[in-house]
Design a protein around this nucleic acid. Structure first.
Lengths: 227, 227
DNA sequence: ACCTGAACACCGTTCAAGT
DNA sequence: ACCTGAACACCGTTCAAGT
């Protein structure tokens, strides 16, 4: 009996890029960024480590493609909204939730400057900003502010999640730990942080996130009134 | 003649944490994040790789400490400003410029969730937000929005710089390259991005950055008027 | 107390060799 | 055309042994 016939069933069809990305996402979801390794990936795909390089350029290509698989799904069909403001909130929240579900997407997004995943988000934002009536010359700064803010929250959220994961803590105990550290800071040097520490454990990430979006929307609209 | 007496002059005093951090920053500035290695660092400090571990916990500790050395300097004494708004802009710009000078600080900041460098920025922002007259209950969302935005731009800027550095391109040719890629995207799928591509090469990062800060400030102030 | 430097357990990536 | 898997050139980190 050949090894191929029984044990460790080999794939029948050849490896595909889509298969690799799917397995990559599974690994990233399960064990975070350090969980994605060419060796682990090869094992999971029942192939050799080098085989992957036939379909993928390198690790950063793999990470980018995995990130794009998530983001493209999220930015695809969003339900039509009554106002452009609501549209922006809905795009933003969709990304927020995606990163909540896949923390590694946050850091991948930050490193994919100008690449497809970022562009997908940019496009949806620009679409709504345009619908808001912002003239072409002012669109860039509006879109760029929204994008930076979204990516900023994305990055921070991802970092929080990954740190909590590495320390084997759930979200709330992690926040409590940060809160206690903050409240023990030097009173003279960090009076405000000590105050804010109280609010930290109870706060709602998602609500804070849209609050920020609304601040920016307010600024964008106010700029319009000046014209 | 002993090796110690002439060649490769050994340090006279023992290694210090400050020395290590100084050397670490020099390496990071010179060759970016991949330029920082325990081996290179040890060589530069004329010591063994393991010696560093007597003073530093691990690489992430080293990166955090290096980042904090930059940020603490930047957040230290800022000139008093006429308005809190100006104060916020000045803090924000100081960080923007620091990351411009040390791109690796941007990514380090993103990964240092809740740690000292982030707290230093948070404190300065909270101070000014308080001076703005925002009541304690509303401060967190205002500070958090500003912080997320600043860290978002920080991260993106750092990513751009590091990518450009890796590709051996200067800022303007890098932006032009991104711009051409964007303008070649599918018209149906990315009409807005194609439009924005035109504005990309000419735009002023720093001006865009404060434009975003002003959007948020506008939102924070408007919230006050509702009370 | 502080340092040395070999050794360990990993990485991503390459490439001759196979089918 | 696609895959194999050993080999290469790195990493961060540890630790017995030194001073």
């Amino acid at each position: 009996m050949s090894k191929k016939a029984t044990g460790n069933p080999r794939r029948d069809e050849s490896l595909s890029r889509a298969q690799i990305i799917e397995a990559s996402i599974a690994l990233l979801d399960a064990n975070g960024e350090p969980g994605l390794t060419f060796r682990t990936l090869a094992e999971r795909l029942a192939t050799g480590a080098g085989a992957i390089y036939w379909h993928i350029d390198n690790k950063s290509d793999l990470l980018l493609a995995s990130c794009d698989a998530i983001i493209s799904h999220v930015t695809k069909a969003t339900a039509p909204t009554k106002t452009p403001e609501a549209g922006i909130r809905s795009v933003a929240l969709a990304i927020f939730d995606a990163i909540d579900a896949h923390p590694w997407v946050g850091s991948a997004l930050t490193r994919a400057a100008g690449k497809l995943p970022m562009v997908r988000i940019l496009e949806r934002l620009a679409e709504q900003v345009c619908a808001l009536g912002v003239p072409e010359g002012d669109r860039w700064s509006a879109v760029s502010a929204l994008l930076s803010y979204i990516l900023g929250v994305a990055g921070q959220n991802a970092a929080n999640r990954q740190l909590a994961q590495a320390l084997q803590l759930d979200r709330s105990t992690f926040l409590e730990d940060v809160s206690t550290v903050w409240s023990q800071l030097d009173v003279n040097a960090f009076p405000f942080t000590r105050e804010l520490a109280k609010a930290l454990p109870g706060h709602d990430d998602r609500a804070d996130f849209i609050a920020g979006i609304d601040f920016i929307l307010c600024g964008i609209n106010a700029n319009g009134h000046l014209r």
